Simulated scan of single mutants.
Amino acid sequence: MSDVPPGRKPRNRPSMIDVARVAGVAPITVSRVANGQDTVQEATRQRVLAAMAQVGYQPNTAARALATGRFGTLGVVTFTMASYGNSRTIAATVAAAEKQGYSVTLLTARSVSGGEVADAVERLHKQAVDGIIVIVEARLIEGGALSLPPGLPIVVADSGGASQYCVVDSDQAGGARQATEHLLGLGHRTVWHIAGPGTSFSATAREEAWRDTLRSAGVQPPRVLVGDWTNHSGYLHGRELARDPDVTAIFAANDQMALGAMRALHEAGRSIPGDVSVVGFDDMEDSDSFWPPLTTVHQSFDEVGRLCVEGLLHEIRHDTGQLRTRIVPTSLVVRQSTAPPG
Rank of each mutant, 00 (worst) to 15 (best):
residue 35 N to D: 04
residue 41 Q to D: 13
residue 213 T to M: 11
residue 179 A to Y: 00
residue 259 L to M: 15
residue 265 L to S: 02
residue 24 G to L: 04
residue 112 V to L: 09
residue 86 N to Q: 14
residue 13 R to S: 12
residue 188 H to F: 02
residue 63 A to S: 08
residue 250 I to T: 11
residue 325 T to C: 15
residue 47 R to W: 00
residue 310 E to C: 06
residue 73 T to A: 14
residue 79 F to N: 12
residue 295 T to W: 10
residue 268 A to W: 13
residue 113 S to D: 05
residue 12 N to Q: 14
residue 52 M to W: 02
residue 281 F to C: 12
residue 162 A to F: 02
residue 300 S to D: 15
residue 173 A to V: 08
residue 158 D to G: 13
residue 43 A to S: 12
residue 226 V to E: 12
residue 297 V to T: 04
residue 226 V to F: 09
residue 224 V to D: 01
residue 265 L to H: 03
residue 156 V to E: 00
residue 56 G to N: 03
residue 9 K to P: 00
residue 185 G to Q: 02
residue 129 V to Q: 07
residue 161 G to F: 02
residue 223 R to S: 15
residue 141 I to P: 01
residue 229 W to F: 15
residue 315 E to S: 11
residue 200 S to A: 11
residue 281 F to H: 13
residue 216 S to T: 15
residue 86 N to I: 11
residue 288 D to K: 08
residue 332 L to F: 13
residue 7 G to Q: 01
residue 335 R to S: 13
residue 72 G to N: 01
residue 130 D to K: 02
residue 79 F to Q: 12
residue 288 D to H: 13
residue 109 A to Q: 03
residue 227 G to N: 09
residue 270 R to H: 10
residue 210 W to K: 03
residue 320 T to P: 04
residue 181 E to Y: 09
residue 248 T to C: 12
residue 56 G to K: 04
residue 284 M to Q: 12
residue 51 A to L: 04
residue 221 P to F: 10
residue 93 T to F: 07
residue 141 I to H: 02
residue 183 L to A: 01
residue 10 P to H: 01
residue 69 G to D: 06
residue 119 D to Y: 01
residue 59 P to N: 04
residue 101 G to N: 02
residue 228 D to T: 03
residue 278 V to W: 03
residue 232 H to N: 00
residue 23 A to G: 07
residue 124 L to I: 04
residue 42 E to A: 13
residue 179 A to V: 07
residue 115 G to R: 09
residue 207 E to F: 10
residue 115 G to Q: 11
residue 270 R to G: 11
residue 193 H to C: 11
residue 49 L to R: 14
residue 228 D to Y: 05
residue 329 P to A: 10
residue 237 H to E: 11
residue 83 S to K: 13
residue 288 D to P: 06
residue 340 P to C: 10
residue 164 Q to W: 06
residue 156 V to S: 06
residue 64 R to E: 07
residue 47 R to L: 06
residue 254 N to R: 03
residue 166 C to W: 07
residue 170 S to L: 09
residue 218 G to Y: 06
residue 18 D to K: 08
residue 28 I to T: 15
residue 166 C to I: 05
residue 170 S to K: 00
residue 290 F to K: 05
residue 15 S to W: 05
residue 195 A to R: 05
residue 6 P to D: 00
residue 117 V to F: 14
residue 34 A to V: 04
residue 261 A to K: 09
residue 43 A to I: 09
residue 306 R to N: 03
residue 328 V to F: 09
residue 22 V to L: 15
residue 72 G to W: 01
residue 48 V to E: 00
residue 260 G to E: 08
residue 292 P to F: 03
residue 217 A to N: 14
residue 180 T to H: 03
residue 340 P to A: 09
residue 89 T to D: 15
residue 336 Q to P: 07
residue 255 D to G: 13
residue 72 G to D: 02
residue 88 R to N: 12
residue 19 V to G: 02
residue 78 T to K: 00
residue 18 D to V: 10
residue 58 Q to P: 04
residue 35 N to Y: 00
residue 69 G to R: 00
residue 215 R to N: 06
residue 342 G to M: 13
residue 121 V to L: 07
residue 110 R to Y: 01
